[in-house]
């Protein structure tokens, strides 16, 4: 009953972490499945199957979305940024702040939270309060931390990224 009808795989072209890619995608695969199981971008996690937890959050055209609720074929012509896209020669300020605050315990929700936080901080372009950070992250569940140190870290990163003396 689940054999896909005969459309074959679609070739989807998009910007992935800044690089143009062309990926063959079965029509019924989600972006999450394409990232994890076709492209081995395993930083995007699977937690709840259906948009309830936020572990699979990536950025689509710069906005945080759950990749388990996006069809792989739907990103044709668009820009997808995963947690791997924040890697560089130096530790991104969000990673550094999370590490410093010990905001990641098991770390399974952390890539999704970092992607949601990065999109939010970039859009606001200024230091944020704990309450603002909590509202921005209210689609991402964490079971380990009680969010306390996550909010500490996001506030600290926002000050470093966009503070008076920051760059």
């Amino acid at each position: 009953m689940t054999t896909p009808p005969d459309q074959g795989e679609l070739t989807v072209r998009f910007l992935l972490n800044g690089e143009p890619v062309a990926v063959a995608v079965p029509p019924h695969w989600t972006l999450l499945e394409v990232l994890r199981y076709r492209l081995d971008l395993i930083g995007t996690k699977q937690g709840c199957d259906k948009g309830d937890c936020g572990a699979c959050t990536v950025q689509l055209d710069g906005k945080a979305v759950p990749s388990c609720l996006v069809l792989g074929s739907a990103v044709d012509g668009r820009a997808v940024t995963t947690v791997e896209g924040l890697r560089g020669p130096t530790l991104h300020p969000l990673f550094d702040a999370f590490d410093h605050a010990v905001a990641a315990q098991c770390g399974f929700c952390t890539p999704g939270i970092v992607m949601a936080a990065e999109a939010y901080l970039r859009r606001l372009g200024r230091p944020v309060t704990r309450a603002e950070a909590a509202a921005a992250l209210a689609g991402n569940l964490c079971r380990c931390t009680g969010y306390t140190k996550i909010l500490d870290a996001v506030v600290a990163a926002s000050e470093r990224l966009h503070g008076a003396g920051g760059g």
């Binding site: 009808p5 029509p27 019924h28 695969w29 989600t30 199957d49």
Partner: peptide
């Protein structure tokens, strides 16, 4: 994980 059933897609 929960998988989607098979279908085709159209992108008008």
């Amino acid at each position: 994980m929960l998988r989607l059933p098979g279908f085709r897609v159209a992108s008008p």
